[in-house]
């Protein structure tokens, strides 16, 4: 991490921002995910890929109506945004699709890894993590 070239600083800063929020209790159950687990960002993207792990708190799990709100929020961003259900070891799905999102079959307590890449990836992750 210390040897990252300067153009990756935005991601480092965003992780630090996440840590700060986490420590100050602003982030709910979201926690930042180490960038090492993410694929390398494309050379032409303005920001590196962003990622966060969130925990489902709703006793009914991630259902149609909460999924609707996730899709609506995700659709406001240009970034490609995916989610994988870590608790089911699922592959990542496109969360701009309600049918793919509910394929995650996310129950209360399940951990989802949200990942975004594209020019507004950081803002997308910030907006989405507040929904969980």
């Amino acid at each position: 991490m210390e040897n990252r070239p300067s153009h990756t600083f935005p991601q480092k800063e965003s992780l630090e921002e996440h840590e700060r929020r986490s420590q100050s209790g602003e982030s709910g159950n979201a926690r930042p995910c180490p960038s090492d687990s993410q694929p390398a960002p494309a050379n032409n993207s303005h920001q590196p890929a962003q990622s966060v792990v969130v925990t489902i708190t709703d006793p009914r799990g991630l259902h149609l109506r909460s999924g609707r709100d996730v899709v609506r929020t995700a659709s406001q961003f240009q970034a490609r945004i995916t989610a994988a259900n870590l608790s089911r070891n699922s592959s990542a799905v496109d969360i701009k699709s309600i049918l793919q999102l509910v394929q995650l079959q996310a129950r209360q307590g399940h951990e989802l890894q949200l990942a975004a890449s594209g020019p507004d990836a950081e803002a997308a992750i910030e907006a989405l993590r507040s929904l969980f």
């Binding site: 609707r68 899709v71 609506r72 659709s75 259900n85 089911r88 070891n89 699922s90 592959s91 799905v93 699709s97 309600i98 049918l99 793919q100 394929q103 995650l104 079959q105």
Partner: peptide, 30 residues
Amino acid sequence: ALHASLGEPLQSVNAVAEAALSTPKLANTG
């Protein structure tokens, strides 16, 4: 309904609805 509410045009809404034909319910639950 969801994509119509996002203001998407007719052809786009239909395309995403028809994508349901290839989106199984039980996929991705390993």
